[in-house]
Amino acid sequence: MEQFFKDPSIYTLVRGPLVWLSFILFIGGMLYRVSVILKMAKEEKVIYPYLSLKYALRSLLHWLIPYGSISMKKHPWFTFISFLFHICLLLTVLFAPGHIELWKESWGINLWALSAKLGDYLTLVVLACLFLLLLRRIFQRDVSFLTSPMDYLILALVSMPFLTGFLSHHELLFDYRLMLTIHMLSGEILLILIPFTKISHMFLFFLTRAHTGSEFGAVRHSRDY
């Protein structure tokens, strides 16, 4: 922040105020979306009375553990790729050396950091997974039938920060500072868009599973996994 006021530039803007803005919009947007949904669920009457903590957790557990559901066992490769993708993505976002500095600088938190090399590998894994997901989207008939331009856009949006992060780290394509600026900017755009696009599944997942898990377990006495 201070840096930006001392030396206003695109770089310091992206590094300072925009980080704050994007986090505020991400968290605020997420809270807003969830609160709207929870209010709608109350008006719908038949959601809350049937919620069961036990069966919501049972459901979440089975779908958060790799191959915890029959569906995952039936799609071994897709499950492998998507778990790999999500795990590497989270690790990179949270523990990349550059990010660790950011956490420290802005929040004063000292997190364990990935080594630069490992961070690199994970980034490449994420990109590779995204590429495989793209191929799947294009070539697998049932998935391509469901796909709309938005789905490609989301793949692109998610891949951007990883691609640019990798490029900036290796000072490829553009000079380091410019690339880093693009990297931060793309990350911020992604963060802001999460609550308002399908990527919001990262938190809506818990809501839908709680509902369906409770209905299946507590009401219908059967399994949803």
Binding site: A41, S200, L204, T208
Partner: peptide, 16 residues
């Protein structure tokens, strides 16, 4: 209401 909204917006078109 809620179910329609969330179900439509959460579907990732994954084909599972």
């Amino acid at each position: 209401s809620a179910r329609l909204k969330v179900f439509v917006e959460t579907c990732m078109r994954c084909g599972m």
